[in-house]
Design a protein around this nucleic acid. Structure first.
Lengths: 139, 139
DNA sequence: AATATACGTGCAATATAGTTGCATTTATGT
DNA sequence: ACATAAATGCAACTATATTGCACGTATATT
């Protein structure tokens, strides 16, 4: 359970206003170790409109509190950024893990994406790496 | 331009019946160097129903002719598998590239995904790596 | 070549996800 | 406490993904 002051700090430091919705959603992210989708939030927070949750995710995304995790299903999922991230510079160069058993998507913060090289003429901007398998809880 | 016999061979060797739709879609994949989405097919093949194209992609996917490429937008894209792929064993361990300029997604068949290790208790099944940037055609 | 049948296709309908505009409410700086 | 810029809720809309069912066709068998 995060204390409220901490939640406020995070929001303020990302130039976001303090609202109930944002505090609750942020707390939910902090309490969970797995990444979350919009529909996860809709199930958890029936008191807020889908659009509000959608825009909450968007504000977190553009302010650099969370990052988007690519996946092969058609559902966007989001994970908390590390403390070292800022809106213009992300340090989310870790591997993401999708468990085929429980379905959870996790940030493996300590497994860094290895360096790769591109063919001639290609300009590399961001790199994502997603491993599918069975997570520690399900093995 | 692929010859028809070759298209038939590919379909037959994956236990799929020969149909116009499948031949045309497969040819389209072979002629393009970029990955394709369902909507790409809908634009190209107005003579076929969306659902037919959807199921064509599905049959190609489960029979191992194409593979799904994860991406952060909510649109599934597909790339041709290498000749060495079979339905039960895929060799698509290459990096995918998404161009932020032209939007194309390409298979970098020769850029292999580097080996990575998982934390204790994690079981690795498949690995995906997606690089975003600017492709050779757009630089 | 005729034919049975399993498989492919088209249509209709539904489900799910993502997005915008607008009126109303609320957080925040002064 | 008040003005204002931002957040919220509602309604509507778009795009994408998916299923059931009836009908048509590729293929194996004879």
């Amino acid at each position: 359970m995060e204390n409220i002051a901490h939640l406020r700090d995070i929001l303020v430091s990302h130039s976001l206003r303090i609202t109930d919705c944002r505090k609750n959603v942020l707390q939910f992210f902090l309490n969970r170790e797995s990444a979350l989708s919009q529909s996860d939030l809709e199930i958890e927070f029936t008191q807020y409109d889908r659009v509000t949750l959608y825009r909450t995710l968007n504000s977190f995304l553009t302010s650099g509190i969370i990052h988007k995790i690519p996946n092969s299903r058609g559902v966007a999922t989001y994970g908390l950024c590390r403390d070292t991230c800022s809106p213009d510079h992300h340090e989310d160069n870790h591997i993401h893990f999708k468990c085929n058993h429980c379905g959870e998507i996790q940030c493996l913060d300590d497994q860094l994406i290895p360096e790769v090289t591109m063919p001639k003429g290609y300009l590399m901007e961001t790199v994502n790496m997603i491993v599918d398998g069975v997570c520690a809880k399900c093995t």
